Amino acid sequence: MAFYNKIKWILGILMIFVLIISTNLIDKNNFVRVRDSVVTIYEDRLVAKELIFEMLKSIHQKELAVSVSDTTFFNTQNAKVNNTLQALVSRFEQTKLTSEEAKVFSDLKKNIASLVAAERQVSNSDYGTNPQIGNHIEKLKDNLNDLSKIQLIEGSRQMSISKRAVDTVELFTQIEIYILVFLAILIQIIVMYKPKEKA
């Protein structure tokens, strides 16, 4: 009977071991999802939001200069603002873009190129009166506004993913506790069960 008891103990321990390993693997997967979601929220949403804000500041500088026909700005600072815009666009390109975001971002790049081209064609005195420059600035503001909205939507989606993953971890923890209690009772029954010996 000693051999039979050893088998019972081994089976009982193996059942617990398999349960713990499987729940740990599920928990690990969910924690990876939470980590990836948090990283995405920071790198691809908050950083992107900051870049959008910086681009909008540069566009507002141009808009202000156009509205007051500030030729000094266009002669001295406009090239620097254009370089800043290009640097911000390059940094934004490095974030992970959704398909919707990629479309808007592509449109933004075209509008920046169109604005810079329009600025080159206009003489100093025409900056304030040329409707093309104002139109390009408005399009850029619309693009940046759309990108900003996408950041909020995607940030919310990532938070939802992480919340679902945490909820799943909590659910599996509860299930694990119930199964462990059941297995403990089952092991007790197996260990204490003694078959009747035949006479």
Rank of each mutant, 00 (worst) to 15 (best):
R164S: 10
I150S: 03
D126H: 11
N75P: 05
D70S: 07
E50I: 12
I175L: 11
I16D: 02
A165L: 03
R91F: 08
A65K: 01
G134K: 02
F31K: 07
R45D: 02
H60L: 12
T168L: 09
T76Q: 10
R91I: 10
D44L: 06
Q77S: 15
V81H: 00
M15D: 02
R33Q: 14
Q61V: 09
S69A: 13
D167A: 15
L152M: 07
V169S: 07
L11I: 14
N111G: 06
I52H: 04
K28W: 13
K8N: 05
N30S: 14
I10P: 05
N75Q: 15
I187K: 00
V32M: 11
D44K: 01
M159K: 09
S99E: 09
A117V: 02
T129Q: 08
E93G: 12
L19T: 00
M15A: 15
R120D: 05
S123Q: 06
D142T: 14
R45G: 07
T129K: 11
A65S: 04
L64A: 13
R35D: 15
M159Q: 08
S114H: 09
D167M: 13
L64I: 08
I177G: 04
E100T: 11
E50F: 15
K80W: 10
I112R: 01
N24V: 11
N124P: 11
L180G: 00
N130M: 07
F92H: 01
V181S: 00
I7W: 07
Y178M: 10
V104E: 01
S114E: 08
P131T: 01
I21S: 06
F53C: 05
A2F: 14
K49W: 11
Q86A: 15
V169D: 04
L147R: 01
N145K: 12
Y4S: 12
D27E: 13
V68I: 06
W9A: 13
N83H: 15
Q132N: 12
I26W: 05
V169F: 08
D107S: 14
L115Q: 03
D142V: 08
A117S: 08
Y178F: 12
F53M: 05
I137K: 02
G155D: 00
I137H: 02
L56K: 08
I187V: 07
D27M: 15
A165K: 00
Q158V: 01
S37P: 03
L51H: 05
N83V: 13
E154L: 06
E176A: 14
I190F: 13
R35Y: 15
L147G: 01
F73Y: 10
S106V: 09
V191G: 06
N5E: 13
E50G: 15
L88K: 02
N75V: 13
G155S: 01
S69Y: 07
L25H: 09
D146H: 11
E170L: 15
V81A: 06
S22G: 08
S156L: 01
S156Q: 07
E50C: 13
I112G: 01
K8I: 15
V47S: 02
V18C: 10
A65D: 03
M192T: 10
V34F: 07
D126Y: 11
I16A: 04
F31S: 08
Q188P: 06
Y4H: 12
L152E: 04
K96S: 13
I133G: 06
I185G: 03
V166W: 03
Y127D: 03
R120F: 09
